[in-house]
Amino acid sequence: MAVELLTLLFNGLAYGVLLFLMAIGLSVTMGMMNFVNLAHGAFAMLGGYLGISLTTRAGVPFLAALPLVFVAVGAVGAGIEVTLYRRFYRSPQLTHVLFTIGLTFMAVAGATYVWGSQIAAMRVPDWLIGQTMFLGLQVGSYRLFLLLVGGAIALALVFGLERTRFGAMVRATVDNRRMAQSLGIDVGRVFSLTFALGSGLAGLGGALAVNFLGGIQPAFPLGYLLVYFLIVVTVGGLGSTLGALAAALLLGLADAAAKFYAPVIASFAIYLVMVVLLMWRPHGILGRR
């Protein structure tokens, strides 16, 4: 009985961490920078495809490919920020919607052109396949790996954004751009770097997710996961890393519980939890304001 419950708990948390890893980049670009970045899924897809290409074609080991993906997608994000996104920070959010959906459409066609319309999957090392013994439980190895990576990233982000000078600069810039500028902060550079961070995280999340999702294909950024990303970020509270983590874990657990105890309502569970939570706390679990 206890084993059953713990296994369920573990699986729910692992799925939650997966959602966290995929959504955390959006928490940075949309939550912190206030940019409704519906192209988040396109950056995640790019990360996924790059990860696949690096590991299967270029023969880069899986663990080495991950930081490479983070840097590469971050660089792409920075490039797009400087040329395009930057013009729209002061535009209404509906303009963001149209612009980023346009970019996503282009990315979908671009991915079809480069990688074809078939699904592509990631080959992970053997030690990440099958089951591992963890605290007396038989658990999926890749799930355990996701939990560890997710925890590390959450810690790094919370520390990096709350406790460092750069983090303070980011928060100052978002809160009051003009004041930050007059304090001598290079606002443009801070935004570029933040956006690069968000994109890099999106890419990393994408690369980590492929093996769990089963594979990716060009329609990925327009699919149901976009909804999940938005749910995690808003239920957590815009701009809150811990909030996003809490929301993602909660959703993962709710999904696992529904599927295990009441499969009939499994397809409703995540949406129900979201609606109830947002009715209760419109600014999210850990939202400011």
Binding site: L8, N11, G12, A14, Y15, L18, G140, R143, F212, L213, G214, G223, Y224, D255, A256, A257, K259, F260, P263, S267
Partner: peptide, 8 residues
């Protein structure tokens, strides 16, 4: 929709 089958 959704990739999670572990609880099943």
């Amino acid at each position: 929709k959704g990739p999670e089958f572990a609880p099943f």
